[in-house]
């Protein structure tokens, strides 16, 4: 593919993945030749069994894991090899929501949300907790938007329930002003009812703010209910890519191996 062709492609989609391969140990690929394009909006779900490389794929995109080969096109550049401040500039445009929330436990809710701005402000401001007023106003607004409210601002993160923590995690990701949000098993540590609420919140955030979200998820029902597009992975390869309605029993059998999982 020529470079110009790729760039026209990049304008149509937010994220373009080309021939992505990742080996933790040489010769044992976890991801084999992944090719994907993520559109400018909506919630995309990646489903598949544990250990199939979903998490590695997500982490390759914001380079918490370094890919072995391939290209990742985001905002007009191949980010698969960027380093240093270039990498930090990419990361601040990609929000991330984690399975175990990964809030800094001993910081307040507000500090956790504001940490989404760390890529934008100088270090001395971070040290003195002197965030720009606009950031603080926006953080309060997000605190309301994720359904927590200003009362939570000064609570310490380790005092919150799982669902509340994940709401803070989502607020932190949106606080980054991202062009893309990645979510790695955001509901796996939550009870079923809270899982639905969190997925609802993410779908709403995606629709209302026009931010594309890519979610790794175990739960096929939740994926079908909230995603406009489902990507099925197994053995480090994409085996299904299409609307949730198109996902049939035979696809699931292929993805999860055999029928007995049902």
């Amino acid at each position: 593919m020529t470079r110009s062709a790729l760039q026209t492609h990049a304008t149509a989609s937010v994220l373009g993945i080309r021939h992505l391969r990742k080996e933790y140990r040489a010769g044992v690929p976890v991801l084999k030749d992944i090719n994907l394009d993520i559109g400018a909006e909506g919630l995309t779900a990646i489903i598949g069994p544990s250990g199939t490389g979903k998490s590695t794929l997500i982490r390759c995109i914001n380079r918490l894991v370094d890919p072995t080969s391939g290209e990742i096109w985001f905002e007009g550049q191949d980010i698969a090899k960027v380093q240093g401040s270039g990498l930090r500039h990419i990361r601040r445009r990609i929000g991330m929501v984690f399975q175990e929330y990964n809030l800094v436990e001993r910081l307040s809710v507000m500090e956790n949300i504001l940490s989404g701005r760390l890529g934008y402000i100088p270090v001395w401001r971070a040290f003195l907790r002197k965030f720009p007023d606009a950031d603080i106003t926006r953080a309060f607004e997000l605190l309301d938007a994720v359904g927590l409210g200003a009362d939570f601002a000064t609570r310490r993160a380790d005092k919150l329930s799982g669902g509340q923590r994940q709401r803070v995690g989502i607020a932190r990701a949106i606080m980054q002003d991202p062009g893309l949000v990645l979510a790695d098993e955001p509901t796996s540590s939550l009870d079923p009812k809270t899982s639905v609420e969190i997925m609802e919140l993410m779908a709403e955030m995606s629709a209302r703010r026009g931010i594309p979200i890519v979610v790794n998820i175990h739960n096929v029902e939740l994926a079908k209910r909230f995603a406009h597009r489902v990507i099925g992975m197994t053995g480090g390869m994409v085996v299904y890519d299409g609307p949730p309605d198109g996902l049939g029993a035979h696809h699931l059998a292929e993805i999860y191996g055999g029928e007995d999982w049902q």
């Binding site: 930090r88 601040r92 984690f98 932190r172």
Partner: peptide, 14 residues
């Protein structure tokens, strides 16, 4: 917790 802060694009000192 460190990984999450790194994922926001924060510099080493941040």
């Amino acid at each position: 917790q460190v990984e999450a802060v790194r994922a926001t694009g924060a510099s080493f000192f941040a």
